[in-house]
């Protein structure tokens, strides 16, 4: 008879590879994310975290609708705001400079987490982050994310495939908030706010990025963190004529 064991809340001693990518186009991010998710699904002792910011654009998750985007397609094209429909939870999200986008690629089964628990951990983590900047933050588990004075400043939308996560968490550090009147992020009638707007302290995206990495590493029990500033898949490829003959 096999004895079923309760899985440990978190697995010990794992390494997290963190990629601080700066500003990156959403399409390039998606390609890298797919590759890393494939790698992690084949080696569940590994995990990755992509941290970046995107040029202005819109992504729409499975709970979103085109009705949440106020500008019509011609206006979006004129502004250069691409729209990507993506397989993640949550609704429409506006990406603008000044946000911190976090894409944890974690093997949930190896960490002993269910998808529901994982989402709740990301929500709690964003509240904890905001409180470090003296922001009066509350979790929103109905539309996963976090709010301050009624307005959202963080949004959670994940995908889980073969127990490996992708997409994840978006935090408004200090973006221009005017464009948020144009998109009902996650279907919320109020425009998003930011940590900079809600905090009496100075909020820098660099500090938010650093604290997010530390909080994610701590919350999911990674005791080793390796930080990279690019990934080989993002490096420009040599043109065909410049490759070694026969390669």
């Amino acid at each position: 008879m096999t004895e079923s064991r309760e899985p440990a809340p978190y697995a010990p001693a794992r390494a997290l590879s963190v990629y601080l990518l700066g500003t990156i186009e959403f399409d390039a991010l998606q390609a890298l994310q797919r590759r890393l998710a494939f790698d992690v699904s084949g080696d569940r002792d590994t995990a990755a975290l992509l941290v970046c910011e995107h040029p202005t654009g819109i992504t729409i998750g499975r709970a979103g609708s085109a009705a949440h985007v106020r500008p019509n397609p011609h206006q979006l094209e004129a502004r250069g705001w691409p729209v990507n429909w993506v397989a993640r939870g949550g609704g429409a999200v506006l990406h603008v400079p000044g946000q911190v986008a976090c894409y944890p690629i974690l093997p949930l089964d190896a960490l002993g987490l269910s998808p529901g628990r994982y989402v709740r951990e990301l929500v709690s983590l964003s509240v904890e982050l905001a409180r470090e900047f003296a922001v009066d933050a509350v979790p929103d588990f109905e539309r996963p994310g976090a709010r301050s004075r009624g307005r959202r400043f963080a949004s959670v939308g994940a995908n889980v495939r073969a127990n490996v996560t992708s997409f994840g968490l978006l935090v408004n550090a200090h973006p221009d908030l005017a464009p948020f009147w144009e998109v009902r992020c996650d279907g919320d009638p109020l425009p998003m706010t930011s940590l900079a707007r809600e905090s009496a302290h100075r909020v820098r995206a660099q500090t938010v990025r650093q604290r997010l990495v530390e909080l994610i590493a701590a919350r999911f029990a990674f005791d080793r963190v390796s930080v990279f500033h690019t990934h080989p898949a993002l490096l420009p490829r040599h043109p065909y004529h410049a490759r070694t003959h026969g390669s």
Partner: peptide, 17 residues
Amino acid sequence: GDRVAEVLIAGAVIDVS
């Protein structure tokens, strides 16, 4: 192992294999 369907929870999409 093929992805055959999607299941939704608040905040996440789970692919069913």
